[in-house]
């Protein structure tokens, strides 16, 4: 069997490129689910991580939470939530957010904690108030790690959103689920390849984001191999 030819043949079918079950529509659905979940998670986790990091309280809790979250089988969480709350966008979002919050939270917390105490001393000594220390000093310095947390979460969300098709949602996972049901192997492979493509786009996007957002003065230090 020639797998490459299979996939090419599948991508070549004209009906793949139009309609609500075509590649562009599914791709967009996937991006929308993932983007929404990531935004919600960031809106919760970044502020909480910044504040807990700034005050130094709750760090142990955040770390334990993240450890526990990593041990959780995502597919089980997703299916349990859907089984209990019913099929629909809201339950899936709840599951995705629950999985994406811990990596963002922990990286943000560690990023702020990792700021050299001397710098904090200098900032306070010059008359910065707590909020100013957080926004003008700690946040920009923690930004590279915050972005790592967001990227980890984004990758996890893209991956888990694929499984969301098993509980009746759209997105690229549909190709895999429907392909299984129809024994259409090229469809499964084509869908998988599209998921890989989206994941790679996420990586590139975060590399660009890093280039745009992280201050030049921090970049060289971070780039030095450890």
């Amino acid at each position: 069997m020639n797998v490459v030819l299979w996939i090419l043949e599948w991508f070549g079918r004209p009906e793949q490129w139009t309609g609500t079950s075509g590649i562009p529509a599914r791709f967009l659905e996937h991006v929308l689910y993932s983007g929404l979940a990531l935004l919600l998670s960031a809106a919760i986790a970044v502020p909480v991580g910044l504040v807990t990091g700034h005050t130094g309280r709750g760090g142990f809790l955040a770390a334990t939470l993240a450890n526990f979250a990593r041990a959780l089988p995502t597919i089980g969480v997703l299916m349990l939530v859907v089984l209990v709350l019913g099929i629909g966008l809201a339950p899936v979002m709840a599951a995705l957010v629950a999985l994406a919050v811990p990596p963002i939270l922990v990286n943000t917390y560690e990023g702020v904690r990792g700021v050299d105490p001397q710098l904090r001393d200098a900032a306070e000594g010059m008359g910065m108030r707590g909020r100013e220390v957080l926004l003008r000093l700690e946040t920009p310095i923690a930004l590279p790690l915050i972005l790592v947390g967001l990227r980890t979460a984004a990758i996890q969300v893209v991956s888990t959103a694929t499984i969301a098709a098993f509980v009746g949602l759209g997105g690229l996972g549909r190709f895999i689920v429907d392909g299984r049901a129809r024994q259409d192997f090229p469809m499964i492979l084509g869908g998988s390849l599209l998921v890989v493509l989206l994941a790679l786009i996420v990586i590139v996007l975060f590399a660009l984001l890093r280039r745009v957002l992280v201050a030049r003065g921090l970049r060289r230090r971070a780039a030095a191999p450890i």
């Binding site: 993240a66 990596p103 922990v106 990286n107 790690l145 947390g149 980890t152 990586i203 450890i226």
Partner: peptide
């Protein structure tokens, strides 16, 4: 733990 699995942020791409 902080980098939550993959990677030092810097060398991703």
């Amino acid at each position: 733990r902080a980098s939550s699995a993959p990677a030092r942020e810097e060398e991703a791409v």
